[in-house]
Simulated assay, not measured.
Amino acid sequence: MIPRPAALHPAHPWAFWTFLTALALLTPGLLHPQTWSFLSGVDLIFHEAGHVLFMPFGETLYLMGGSLFQVLLPLALAGVFLWRGEGVSCAALLLWTAQSLGNVSVYVADAQARLLPLLGDDPDSHDWWQLLGSWNALAASHTLGNLLWFLSIVTALAAVWTAYIGTRFGSTGGRNA
């Protein structure tokens, strides 16, 4: 097991306001995840990488792997910063996780209509159309998409709280590590 750092310094007092500025810039993407942003392009890269990483584990995980990896990567990195006691860095990665969840929510909700532009020209290559169709659950695509969007908002609120705690009480959340 890797030892946790013995002592961590508090975050800079201006870090929370910097975080809130970043949140304000990302808010349109969080509230309207169907809009394209720089992070959407980053998500797309990790989405496609997820398909490659999950390919050996069968068709279901291959199809889900893109969406899973684009959300789990920033979430895992947030966990690393949380473990290290770096609240503001954790919060920034939670914001990315929230934005990515929002993108996935749009993709899932589009499963029935398949109107989103995909990398290929074939609308039948839509991951969530294939998944939900194979489970006879296409009718649930909007409900599932709305649930993921709700989780993205909850994750964004958790990011704000994490940034606040990280700056108000120092990186360790008020405790020595």
Rank of each mutant, 00 (worst) to 15 (best):
W135E: 07
D124R: 13
G170R: 10
L95G: 13
F19H: 02
A159N: 04
F69I: 04
A92I: 12
W149S: 12
H142P: 03
H51N: 11
L8W: 00
V71M: 13
L138P: 11
V88A: 04
W96M: 10
S100D: 09
L115M: 15
P13Y: 03
C90N: 00
G85K: 03
L131E: 10
Q130P: 00
V154W: 11
N146T: 14
R168W: 02
T35V: 14
W135K: 09
Q34T: 11
I153W: 13
S100I: 01
P5G: 03
F169P: 08
L144H: 11
S141R: 00
N136D: 15
F19C: 09
F81H: 05
N146E: 13
R84C: 02
L131H: 10
A11R: 12
P3V: 08
L73A: 12
R175Y: 14
L118G: 08
H126G: 09
V106D: 03
D122I: 05
A78G: 03
V154P: 08
G41Y: 02
A137Q: 13
S141P: 00
A158F: 13
L73N: 06
T97Y: 06
Y164A: 05
R84S: 05
A113Y: 09
V160T: 12
L144T: 07
P33S: 05
T143Y: 01
D110K: 07
E59Y: 07
G65Q: 07
H126T: 03
A177G: 15
L132Q: 04
L115D: 14
L25H: 00
